[in-house]
């Protein structure tokens, strides 16, 4: 490996290689690989120290992918559908740590639905990505809960059941950041990831990530072709980190740009496309998702954001030192207290 030149180092003094993972063992062309690459780029560009990130997952193709980025971060490939609780507990260890969770549609919308919704309602501070392809890959091609009605899969027949809309579920559980994207739209994925990393609380990203092996036929609602043909971005999103001076790039017509100020001082800039969309309204989010379902649109972009809610760990009034660095004297009550405790018993 050649030594990176200073210009290739970010403000954390690291090169992009410092953010890479093991080589992927997923299929060639899998949408998940593209998302992993965007995570590498995002963390590099945001100057995130990899040791300050934990990467967590459940079980499935998507859940394998934390091995394919951020080698220098702590990782935990946990149980099917159970990453949400693992993250909830782990984040108490050191609240300066950022968490990134990678899940799939089976992991989140079937076996892990309960845990997912409770993680969301507690506003656990995590970037929670669902790599959504409508199908079980590792077990070779069964329907997932996000598969559309009428999907015809080899050996499985035709799906009869209404799909679960992960963004809708997140909203219904009072999520504070909900976005949908498409793995084929790398730029948008990256900008949304950056915004998610800055978000104060749970950031749910439902990314349609086609399965090239089991569910990529022309008109299937999780295929590349369908995604490309039906993607309807709500806006053109760009993320401006807190430290950067906001430069006005080009001239914007009056009312054509919306800015969302983040808790950490950074800004999300949303450039209006066909219609104006206000992502601070839950009602708007529900409405657009409903319309998308009726009209067969793949609505992408930042659906909803609320920076004002406290995160789970903030509600606990914890000491400033990370809990996992506390020592005996912090953790064991003093000797004289035992007599008081015994006196409190009868």
């Amino acid at each position: 490996m050649t030594t990176p030149t200073p210009s290739q180092l970010n403000k954390a003094g690291l090169s992009k290689n410092d953010y890479r993972g093991q080589p992927s063992t997923l299929c060639q062309g899998c949408g998940h690989n593209s998302i992993a690459n965007q995570i590498v780029t995002t963390c590099y560009e945001l100057d995130i120290v990899p040791e300050k990130v934990i990467k967590l997952s459940g079980i499935g193709c998507s859940s394998k992918s934390p091995a394919y980025f951020l080698n220098r971060s702590f990782g935990f490939n946990s149980l099917h559908g159970r990453m949400s609780s693992l993250a909830t507990g782990a984040l108490f260890a050191d609240t300066s740590i950022r968490a990134i969770g990678i899940s799939g549609d089976g992991d989140t919308a079937s076996i892990g639905m309960g845990g997912f919704k409770h993680m969301v309602r507690r506003n656990v501070p995590i970037v929670y990505i669902v790599e959504n392809n409508g199908v079980y890959g590792l077990t070779k091609g069964q329907f997932s809960a996000t598969a559309e009605v009428g999907l015809n899969l080899k050996h499985q027949g035709i799906n009869q059941y209404m799909p679960v809309d992960i963004c809708m579920e997140a909203l219904a559980s009072n999520a504070t950041f909900v976005a949908r994207s498409f793995a084929g739209d790398a730029k948008q994925v990256k900008e949304l990831l950056k915004a998610a990393f800055s978000h104060h609380g749970v950031a749910v990203l439902d990314i349609i990530s086609p399965c090239v092996t089991f569910n990529n036929e022309g008109e299937a609602a999780h295929s590349y072709t369908w995604g490309k043909d039906h993607e309807a971005p709500l806006h053109e999103i760009s993320f401006i980190p807190a430290m950067d001076e906001i430069e006005i790039q080009g001239e914007f017509a009056e009312g054509s740009v919306r800015e969302v100020c983040m808790h950490d001082g950074s800004t999300i800039r949303l450039k209006k496309l066909e219609k104006d969309y206000d992502p601070t309204s839950r009602a708007n989010a529900f409405q657009i998702l409903e319309s998308a379902q009726l009209n067969d649109w793949l609505v992408t972009g930042l659906l909803y954001i609320d920076e004002s809610k406290p995160t789970l760990t903030e509600t606990f009034n914890l000491v400033d030192t990370p809990l996992n660095r506390l020592v005996d004297a912090d953790l064991r009550p003093e000797r004289e207290t035992i007599d008081k405790i015994n006196a409190m018993m009868f």
Partner: peptide
């Protein structure tokens, strides 16, 4: 927690985190 599946998951997350 929301159930025992999550209760132990949280406890293991914290244990892994050094608590």
């Amino acid at each position: 927690a929301e159930d025992e599946l999550a209760a132990i998951g949280m406890a293991i997350g914290a244990g892994w985190g050094g608590l």
